[in-house]
Each structure stands twice: as C-alpha cells, then as structure tokens.
Design a protein around this nucleic acid. Structure first.
Length: 655
RNA sequence: GCCCGAGUAGCUCAGUUGGUCAGAGCAGGCGCCUUGUAAGCGUCAGGUCGUCGGUUCGAAUCCGACCUCGGGCUCCA
C-alpha cells in the first residue's frame, strides 16, 4: 500500500499510510493532540477527523483552542439538543440549529402547537447529558436530493432546505445546513437521529458537555414575519468547565451593569407606568449628567464650525410627502393629527427641517459647507416588543447635524467629520472603535455613478486616514447614499453602534436644493447626515453600562461628598463645600447624624468619586481625609489645596 | 406586532398542596447615640398582592382578558 505525504502548518511533512485520517495524523503527531483534536482543516476546508486525507494535502488539526474548534463544539451541541428534543417530543420537527457567538440555538415546531416552558429545559438538558455519556459517533453520510427528501419525510423545514440547496439557492441563512453543488450530507448519531448538515462535527458526543441551555424564545421560520413562529432554544457551549463558568460569570456581571437597574438604583431615571411604554422621566441626578453630556456636545459643535438650529416637533404632511418619509417610512411614524383642516405628523427625523433652513435663502458656493446642528427630539413608532429602556424608545433626542456642501468639498468634509466624531467619543472614555462602510445597493439607487464612487472613496479614505479598522458591507448602503457606522467597544468588550455618517443624494433632489457656483450656474449640493452619539438617551444608557454607574468626575452629578466626623466639624465641612462651589465643583455635606461608617458606605454605594472625611486634625491643619472611589484605603492629612488641584486635574482631563 | 416568562411596600425579595400569609431587610419619619473611613440602637408609618372579570364557603395562590415589564423574533427607510 502506498503512503501519503502531508504538510503541516509549520511547514514540516509527515508520511502516513494511504487511507489515513485526520485522527490518525493527530495521533501520529502526539497523543495529547489526538485527545484534543476536534476536526481537521484539509487544504483550507474543515473536515471530520474520520475522513481519509488526500496525498499532498496541507492539514492542520483543529482543537478547542481555536474559534473553529469552538464553533464545531457549539454546532455539535446543537445537534445533541435536537436529538434530545426529538426524543422527548414525538411528532416534533426541527428546522435549523447553527452555532452563534458564545453558543448555539435550534428551532423546532412541536406537535399540536405545543411550546417549551423553562422547566422543559431541565428535562432536555438531562437527556442531552445522557446522549453525551453514551459517546455516540457523529457519522457523515452523503446523498442526493431525492435520497435526502426520503430521509426527511415528515420534516417539512428540512425538505424546504433540501429544495433550496438543490436549486443552488441555499442563501446565507441556511448555510451550514447542507452542502452546495447537489451533494447533500447528513449526520447520524445514536440509533436513529439524523440531521441534514454540512458539518463537520466533533468525532463523538463524548467530546461535548460544557454547555448550558439558557432560554426559550419564539423565532419566525427563516426570520420572516409571515412564516410560522417556531420554538427556539438558546444555549451556550464551551471547551471546558472553566470557560463555561467564566462565560456565565460574565453574563451576571453584565446584568449588574444593566442601565435600567442602575438608573433606578442611582436615582437617575425612572419609567412610571403612567407614562406609557418606552417613556422615561429624568430625575435631578440623571438630568444633570445628561445636561453635562449635552453641554459638551454643544461646546464641541460650536468649536467645530456648526451653526445651531431648532425645529418644531410636528409639521404638515406636505413636508413629509416632499421628503419621501410618508412613502418609505410611514409605518415608523406616529399617526397624524388633524388641525385647522391640515394634517400634521410628529417628526421621525430632523433632516427635512434642516433642508428648509438651507432653502430659506439663495446660497452661494462661498457659503458652503453649511453645517446645521440640533439636539432634535424625534418620535418613532417602535414595535412594542422592541422597546428596551433608554436604548430603544419611542421618543429620543438625536445629536443630529446636516452638512450641505459641494461635490468637491465632500472628501475633505468627510475626513474632518470622522476625525471630529472620534475625538468626541474619546472624550467619553471610548478608545476602541470598529467601523463599517456600506456601499451602493444593487438596483434602485439614486444619484449618478460617479457621485457614488466619489463619496464612497471619500468615506474609505477618511477611514484610512483616521487609521480606523473597518469592514465593508457591500451593497449595504441605503438607496440614497453610502455611509459609515462606527461601533465603540465598552469596558466589558461589548460593541455599541453609536455614530453614523451618511451621504444623501436624494433629499437635495426632492427639495430641489441649489447653490450658485463660481461659474454662476446653479448646482445641487450634497447632503451629509451625521449623528455622533446617535440618541442622547441611548448614549447615556451606554455610558451608564460602560462605567457601571461610576461616572468620571467631570460627569458625576455629585463630585465630592464631605463628611464631618462630628457636629463640631460641620462648619469646616461647609467651608470646603463653599470653596469647591466657587470653583464650579459639585459637592454636598452629610452632617454627623449617622455614624461615619454608615455615611461612607452610602457615598460608596452612590458611586461618588471623592468622599472627604474631616475631623479635628483637618480643621487644625486645613487638610482632608480622602476616600476615593475605587481606592483600597483612605488617605489622611491631605492638604485641601492639594485635593482641589487633584480634582481640577481630573475634571479637566475627563478621566 | 408575534412566541415564552414575570408582576407582593420607594428598592431587593419571602409567602409550602387556595384556609390569621399580607411578611423581612434596606430606604423614609421620630427618638436615643456624637461618631476618623463600606450598614449603631429603638420605634413608627407603607401594599385593594398590576387591573378587571370568573371558579370557590374561602384566592396573593386556580382560570380568562387586558396593562406593564423581561428574554427572543421581526423591525431600526
């Protein structure tokens, strides 16, 4: 029998007998690797370990250390979930079950419209662990469309996938379910369970086990509202018990940062039932933080060459007809109001108003670019199920601006705009950005080709000049122009999409906007929509979660809390408050009606950046005892002037 | 809007199979204590158990509808 020669990722070569599999190769390299091996990457394609390797192939053994390995574990765990559910619910059918970030899900349709209850998860979990204990092999089989149709008799969703795949129309949402190009593969394990699947899978169920079923949810078949609602089970799966525990711990930590919880605990915002879904009131401490955010935004825009404008909350239907919102966006708009024989709509966007400001007089190229800024409150009819605290509500305030410029000005304008955007976000403690460039969609798009090209190039070079990493969403732009979206990563690694910079070739056309060029001719300006924080309310929520409620001193509603040790130190405490106040810092004095320890604790729980304790020594020497937020131990005998200097520096540098 | 789940004092939560089950801690008021760095002591007040119906001799507890919230799906031109 001839031997085969294989190349490893490190460039070395190994010779194995013909017919050797990935598992054989792993064992040949070492027993430790054989034990850890999950799948093999053969010439760049992931394969089951049981597949014989072709001569001359480049092969790497994938373990749980890699994303691909984890992905396989999650995918295989999803199969076991389906196996357990089909065992426990005779008559149930299954749809798709892909791996996702941190885990997997699987969609089912239970007989007679039954649904999963959270208690069912325990039974499913137990059954899954039994299957894993049996260490069943995942065995791959290949067939053709008619064989597959026969195999999945009685499982309409699988058959629908088979049809789609056979037509070569699998589509991204079905990827992973079956192979391309006419060959359909499926995996069997145990004595009857089979699933349509492209694979690969771990060698056997015994390689799984560090998983947890998390929640049940409804999900439309193929994500389509007009399709039946399936029952989805979500789970998480990891390579080790430790990784699983770590993930569950992170989830608990994230829950502690939930802005809805912190907003109530810190007395910032509340959602009284009497207001209606998605509508909040801002308490003094929350409103103060919000005001500081807005003040900073205004300050930066003023310095950044923006003109401030204001616009009303409602306007007649003619405005929304001209802008096209009533054609394209009516479902998202609040219903109309009839007044004096006219129809008014609450505004879902500020842009048409800013357009009317531009259009209020004749513009020369000398006037451009014109940048109109407004903290504009808009109202959108969000589906009730989509509402989420401050992150998604039916009324919110955009830090919105519209820039009107000439075509020639577009590249420079975009470059400085992106720079400006990042600079403002950095001031709030974000320094990890990820951008997305969305380009011209196929089909109906307005604007000439060269305009699209120029604008898209402008966006791309702005990203490159800023040194921002970005992905390209080919065809992901709106019909009216390309855009950049900027995500920030928060303190616990979660991405939040905040900023958007969007070209618009449509509105200037619809409103017939013009300026007079140096050639004396009339030209159409280009319009750029942009928001840095997006929604002020949502941005506040993101900051609240990012800082876990511990706002930096420049944003903290109460920067300093002064605690006299006893009543006789009250006057000294008041004098400190007064001098801090004179310098523009926010402080309070909590009198000695309660024990010191209790007052210190109250200050810590409220996340005040600086707690000052003052007693006899301090009165005598003009010092303070400082207990800083996050400090291990208090610092005694700090000269008051030194403390003020420290605070001033902290506020000025926004740390 | 659709699927699942949850609603008990301002907050966090207990309330076994429907029968003194309307409770606790924190927060709040009052009194005592006069305090050197994360909860001093006592005492008082607070809830139509989300709302409205129904079952029952009896409902926080069982059923239905609605409202609100949560997790998903969808949506976010």
């Amino acid at each position: 029998m001839a031997d085969i020669t294989l190349s490893l990722p490190d460039g070395s070569q190994r010779t194995l007998p013909d017919g050797a599999t990935g598992a054989d190769l792993a064992l040949d390299i070492g027993p430790g690797l054989a034990k850890a091996a999950l799948v093999a990457t053969v010439d760049g394609i992931e394969r089951d370990l049981a597949v014989p390797l072709p001569d001359g192939a480049t092969v790497s053994i994938v373990t749980a250390d890699s994303d691909a390995g984890l992905y396989t574990i999650r995918h295989s765990t999803a199969h076991v979930l389906a196996q357990a559910v089909l065992d426990l619910w005779p008559g149930a059918t299954y749809a798709i079950g892909p791996p996702i970030d941190h885990g997997f899900y699987y969609d089912f349709l239970l007989p007679e419209g039954a649904t999963f209850s959270p208690e069912d998860l325990e039974a499913i979990d137990s059954r899954m662990r039994e299957i894993i204990a049996l260490d069943q092999l995942f065995e791959r089989h290949e067939t053709d469309a008619s064989g597959a149709m026969e195999l999945f008799e009685g499982h309409p969703y699988k058959r629908e996938i088979i049809e789609k795949v056979s037509e070569g129309d699998g589509g991204a949402e079905l990827s992973g379910e079956a192979g391309a190009s006419g060959v359909l593969s499926c995996y069997r394990n145990g004595d009857g369970f089979v699933d349509l699947c492209m694979g690969p899978h771990v060698p056997s169920t015994g390689r799984l086990g560090h998983f947890a079923l998390q929640k049940v949810a409804g999900a439309y078949w193929r994500g389509d509202e007009s399709q039946p609602m399936l029952q989805r089970i979500y789970g998480t799966a990891w390579a080790s018990k430790k990784d699983l525990a770590g993930h569950l711990h992170r989830l608990i930590e994230a829950e502690k940062r939930d802005h809805r919880r912190l907003a109530v605990e810190l007395d910032l915002v509340s959602w009284p039932e009497s207001l209606g879904p998605g509508l909040a009131v801002w308490h003094p401490r929350g409103a103060l933080i919000r005001k500081l955010i807005e003040d900073y935004s205004r300050e930066r825009h003023e310095a950044g060459g923006y003109d401030f404008v204001f616009s009303p909350h409602i306007a007649k239907s003619i405005l929304w007809e001209t802008s096209g919102h009533l054609d394209f966006y009516a479902d998202g708009m609040y219903p109309p109001m009839e007044m004096d024989g006219a129809t008014y709509y609450p505004k879902p966007m500020n842009c048409p108003f800013h357009v009317t400001v531009f259009d209020s007089s004749q513009r020369s190229y000398r006037d451009l670019p014109l940048r109109y800024f407004e903290l504009g409150a808009v109202y959108r009819y969000e589906l009730s199920g989509a509402i989420h605290g401050l992150m998604r509500s039916r009324g919110f305030t955009q830090d919105d601006a519209h820039i009107f410029c000439t075509r020639e000005q577009v590249p420079a304008e975009l470059a400085s705009l992106l720079e400006f955007t990042l600079s403002v976000l950095r001031a709030f403690g974000f320094d990890d950005f990820q951008a997305k460039l969305s380009t011209r969609p196929e089909g109906k798009a307005v604007g000439e080709d060269d305009l699209w090209e120029m604008a898209t190039d402008g966006l791309r070079s702005a990203l490159e000049t800023a040194g921002l990493s970005y992905v390209v969403d080919e065809g992901g732009g709106a019909f009216y122009g390309p855009k950049i979206d900027v995500d920030v990563t928060d303190a616990i690694g979660r991405p939040w999409q905040l900023s958007t910079i969007q070209l618009d070739f449509n509105l200037p056309e619809r409103f017939g906007l013009e300026y007079v060029g140096s050639d004396g001719e009339r030209h159409r300006p280009v319009m750029i929509h942009r928001a840095l924080m997006g929604s002020i309310e949502r941005f506040f929520g993101v900051l609240l979660e990012h800082f876990a409620g511990a706002f930096p001193a420049w944003l903290a509603p109460e920067q300093v809390r002064i605690l006299p040790v006893a009543a006789e130190h009250q006057q000294y405490a008041e004098s400190i408050r007064s001098s801090l106040g004179d310098r523009g810092y926010r402080s309070t004095v909590v009198p000695a009606d309660e024990p010191l320890g209790k007052r210190v604790r109250a200050g810590k729980v409220t996340k005040v950046p600086h707690i000052l304790v003052v007693g006899d020594d301090d009165v005598a020497n003009s010092t303070v005892g400082e207990n800083a937020r996050g400090a291990d131990s208090p610092e005694r005998d700090l000269p008051l002037d030194a403390f003020i200097e420290r605070l001033a520096d902290e506020v000025a540098t926004r740390v």
